[in-house]
Design a binder for these strands. Sequence first.
DNA 1: GTCTATACCACGATAGAC
DNA 2: GTCTATCGTGGTATAGAC
Lengths: 188, 188
Amino acid sequence: MAQSQPPQDKRTDLTNAAQALFYEQGFGATSLANVAERAGVPLGNVYYYFKTKDSLVDAILVDRRAQFDAMAQQWELHEDPKDRLGAFLDMNEASREMVTKNGCPVGGLCMELNKDRSALGTKAADVLRRYMDWVTAQFQAMGRADADDLSARLLASIQGAMLMANTFHDPDIISRELVRVREWLDAM
Amino acid sequence: MAQSQPPQDKRTDLTNAAQALFYEQGFGATSLANVAERAGVPLGNVYYYFKTKDSLVDAILVDRRAQFDAMAQQWELHEDPKDRLGAFLDMNEASREMVTKNGCPVGGLCMELNKDRSALGTKAADVLRRYMDWVTAQFQAMGRADADDLSARLLASIQGAMLMANTFHDPDIISRELVRVREWLDAM
DNA sequence: GTCTATACCACGATAGAC
DNA sequence: GTCTATCGTGGTATAGAC
């Protein structure tokens, strides 16, 4: 009974390595040998934890969703939904340097996995959908009837700023867009 | 002297096929065999026109720039710079179904080629930069001192809407964003 | 559960006949 | 200029000893 599933550590090492590499290089450009090396695990052993490469990216998509849920839980400590959205914007501001280097972790996967692979594309979209739903909920709490539209607008402006910041290597594009979003929110 | 360089047709067939496939599937996911087949050219012959796969995507980047220049030339028939930007928005509205299926042709390449390949990433960024510069020029013609910032804002909102429309398979995200951009422009 | 060796295939690129 | 055949590499995935 003791330690029925103890070597989950290795599995975690693999998902962490994969998450980093898929983000930095993209899914297609990352080999399982890369992941194994970064995780300090022999290549052959990867297949004990993940039958296919697809199932590995599937696992990191689940991780990303859980990471969002954990952050959202913190943001929801604010009473005012407007402050919750402000906390969400703070997170985006804090990650601007990373995003300028490698793009949006979620948006990048959505774009790449939607290119051909309908199965994985849908699962990547589910992660972004989680962002959408949460932001929508905040606008609803603010009593806005057009919460869904406002949410799409907020996320689109951030996604676009992240893509341009990444393309032009300029983190200020993100900062300036976030300032505008804050003004727009404050005026509501 | 007659027909000194007549078989440029085959080269054009190859770049057209590559442009379509890189857009639909991404650069990394498209093999030269795919391109050759789509163009109706035997695989080995591809290398007569393009020494490497990189030089092929390089050529289609040049094409995309030329395609933009040709469109911009049309838009500039409008006297009022605000109308020129309106024509640019019309183009985006017209391509919303295509973008919903496969994402932004320029943004997609910028994201993918910026992931690892610094050389090609810069060249892809140059295409988006061309959009930026043109939009900036219109805002300058409108007498706006913050033309560069306004341009980044306009393009970011469109890029973000395109990414979300593609992710969620919903072209209306693009249309709604374009309506807002038009209102924002009209109020200037 | 772990790791080595390897099967198998697809890709980019080249050689060389025509 | 065109096309076939193929080389070499590197990828996913598996077999099987430990």
